[in-house]
Computed example of a mutant assay.
Amino acid sequence: MVEDDDGRTPGLTAAGARPEPKQAWGALPWLVRAAVVWSACLVVVIIGLYLLGKVAVLLAPLAIALAVTLFLAALLDPVLLLLRRLRVPRALAALLSLLLLLGILVGVGAVVWNLTAAEFDELSRELGEGLQRSRDFVTTALPISDAQLDKIIGQVRSGIGGGFDLIGGARTAAEVVGSSLLALVLLFFLLKDGRSMWHWVLRRLTGPNQQVTAEAGRAGWRTLSAYSRGTMIIAAIDALGIGLALVLLGVPLALPLALITFLGGFIPIVGATVAGAVAVLVALAAKGPTTALLVLAAVIVVQQVEGNLLEPLIMKRQVQLHPAVILVVVTAGTLIAGIPGAFVSVPIAAVTYRVVDTVQRHRERLAAEKTGAPPPPPAPA
């Protein structure tokens, strides 16, 4: 065995042991060390996201009920505050706010159903004709045969829905009914005791934790309130603008299409796109390609006005998420809980972002006070 000048074997310590792990780790190239660390972090993140997704799927009905409850509470909060200023007792004010919501939902639903129930069969037929025209255009203009197109459509349907299951459909319907009832009960108690419960939580905290929690809670609630009221206003304006365009162009079923546009407005980007596509398909089937192009132009104009003028004006900067983030969040919500998940995913993401941003700004402000550096700019009001 070869020895060094001092009589020790290379690679061994004075006691004859192998090098310490820290020495062996330091002997590795920095690129290898960085790759190992980042790979380990990535594995931990993936496992965490997988476990979080499993929990979210198991608790999806409860999570959706809670999200809907918070959304409706933020929407009804001005009504509750108005009743409280009129000296109405808290429990009665919460009950009246809840009854007002139910009255509006039932009343609007009854009016819309009476006006459009007879037209939904025609809407289905018009959509079928529009899809058939689109299919004919695709098979004529592109090198795709009917069999290939059927195969592609079948793959998309199987990937999205996996077919209809009667037992699964009944279970989903039961979950929807149960979640709706749970949301109504929680909404009453949240309107009645929400502020006292929040103050109870704050009293259990002390020092800086109480301050940052109160600040983050106010920011999150303002964001949710701005989103709930702003989304409803923007959806109503979209439905009014597109519905008026359909009436002026003589497209049938303008009221059902306006209703679809209003509901689609609660799912950012995706909902408006789907609602606009439905309106264009109906116009194509009923009036031909020229009217369909005019409807498409009207949909684009209305949505551009909404995105570039109305949304910044109504939402301000409280609910500012990048379109790419919105698409990812809506897709994730849809995969986890279907259409209800798509409805609640964006407000959850917006509130989470605002809370995290508020906590970070609070920490930066405390650090600036300690070091004497200029404080960070205030959060959007």
Rank of each mutant, 00 (worst) to 15 (best):
V36L: 13
L255N: 08
K316W: 05
L66G: 03
I144K: 09
T213N: 12
P377Y: 05
E126S: 14
L191G: 00
T352H: 12
L296A: 15
M315H: 01
T231F: 02
W221I: 03
A17T: 13
V247M: 03
L59T: 09
L293N: 01
P340W: 03
L51Y: 05
F343N: 00
R33Y: 07
R229T: 11
E175I: 07
R133T: 02
I260T: 09
A275I: 04
G207F: 03
A15N: 07
L184M: 11
A174C: 04
L244M: 13
A286N: 01
T358L: 10
L96Y: 09
S225G: 13
V299A: 11
P29H: 04
V138N: 06
V37Q: 07
G307D: 07
T13E: 11
L191M: 04
Q155Y: 11
P323W: 01
L75Y: 00
V328K: 15
R354M: 03
W25E: 03
V112W: 14
V112D: 11
A254H: 14
G333R: 02
I234L: 05
P312R: 01
A73D: 07
G307C: 06
L366W: 10
A34Y: 12
A258R: 12
Q303G: 15
A173M: 12
K151A: 14
A17I: 07
G178A: 00
L149K: 12
T13K: 05
A56V: 08
L166I: 11
